[in-house]
């Protein structure tokens, strides 16, 4: 019964599409969507490594704060396991911060 409820509408949609939306592909219709302009170049191009560093530092500061606020709010009622897990998480992120600091990413150019 449950499988039928899933399969029957799918089958009906498939039948409907078979009769009332015939496939008519074409070179323009099937081409990549790029705001109406003809597609150009290779989408797998290289990105500047700065974006990678930016992502790491974003993770360290922003995502850390998102987790730290509920952690701080529930701190007194937490079991020892949760505190340990959080400590490991903080250590990993602090490690990232130390790495970024040593690499000199934090100095403004």
């Amino acid at each position: 019964m449950a499988i039928g409820m899933g399969v029957v509408p799918l089958g009906l949609a498939w039948l409907w599409a078979r009769f009332f939306s015939p496939r008519k592909p074409g070179p323009e219709k099937s081409s990549n969507y790029e705001c109406g302009l003809a597609s150009e170049g290779d989408p797998g191009g290289q990105q500047n490594v700065q974006y990678y560093l930016y992502a790491i530092v974003f993770l360290v500061f922003d995502v850390e704060s998102v987790f730290l606020i509920p952690f701080a709010a529930a701190f007194t009622g937490l079991p020892i396991g949760a505190v340990l897990a959080m400590a490991v998480f903080l250590l990993l992120l602090a490690e990232g911060l130390v790495w970024a600091w040593l690499k000199g990413i934090l100095t403004w150019h």
Binding site: G26, E28, K29, S31, Y33, G36
Partner: peptide, 11 residues
Amino acid sequence: QIVRLYNQMAE
């Protein structure tokens, strides 16, 4: 661009 976008729309 307009004709290409029109072509890319679904019937």
